[in-house]
């Protein structure tokens, strides 16, 4: 009788512990917020990015763009070039989102984050000359550099200038936008190849000048 009571008590304790265990949140912002803990060391608690680690601002980027990029990283379509140290780092982290719905959830959460203003860091580039260069970009990224989902072009305005410049260089060098599965990246690459180093600095300075929320 005593033994039966002991087993009963043990069972009740185990049941209580099981009931108190946090359940996996359903797909959505709550789950995305929990997953975002993995992103904080590089992208920061506000998603503001970190130049020292090459991590861009991601807060407030469109959900479709975030999902697309995570998919590209997971499949090695982006961050697959052996010289792209920063991209490789992100690819590894994207692979950690291994459950169904992880990618969508974290993208939804990041897209919902308020966009922090980021300071300019580059002292090079002529915005006026950049405006001319930017005419090529308007077709996809829009006149205000706000992006266009129809052609999978991300918004550029509000992004760190050092990041924009680094991505232009990566496209031109063939570190990004070369994988046959990265259709839209392959579209961007030829456009970057038309630009000289000076053109890149100018166009980034111009995009920077479009940002009215600058600190």
């Amino acid at each position: 009788m005593q033994r039966t009571r002991s087993f009963g008590a043990l069972f009740a304790v185990l049941l209580t512990v099981a009931a108190c265990m946090p359940a996996e949140p359903e797909q959505g912002i709550a789950r995305g917020e929990a997953l975002y803990d993995t992103c904080v060391p590089c992208h920061g608690p506000q998603g503001q990015g970190n130049e020292a680690l090459g991590a861009p601002l991601i807060a407030g980027l469109p959900q479709w763009y975030l999902e697309n990029q995570l998919e590209k990283y997971e499949n090695g379509w982006r961050g697959g070039h052996p010289m792209d140290t920063v991209g490789i780092r992100m690819r590894s982290m994207a692979n950690a989102l291994d459950l169904e719905g992880d990618r969508e959830s974290v993208s939804e959460y990041v897209a919902s984050m308020p966009v922090p203003a980021v300071p300019a860091s580059l002292e090079v580039g002529d915005p006026q000359a950049g405006q001319q260069v930017y005419q090529t970009c308007i077709a996809c990224h829009g006149p205000e550099a706000g992006g266009n989902e129809a052609v999978q072009s991300p918004p550029l305005v509000g992004q760190h200038d050092w990041y924009l410049l680094s991505q232009l260089h990566k496209f031109k060098r063939g570190w990004r936008g070369v994988n046959p599965n990265d259709t839209w990246g392959q579209t961007m690459r030829p456009n970057s190849m038309l630009l000289s180093d000076e053109d890149m600095e100018d166009v980034v300075a111009y995009i920077r000048s479009l940002d009215q929320t600058e600190e």
């Binding site: 490789i88 780092r89 590894s92």
Partner: peptide, 9 residues
Amino acid sequence: GQQWAWVFQ
């Protein structure tokens, strides 16, 4: 080695 992958030449 790099965070968090191996690159081979």
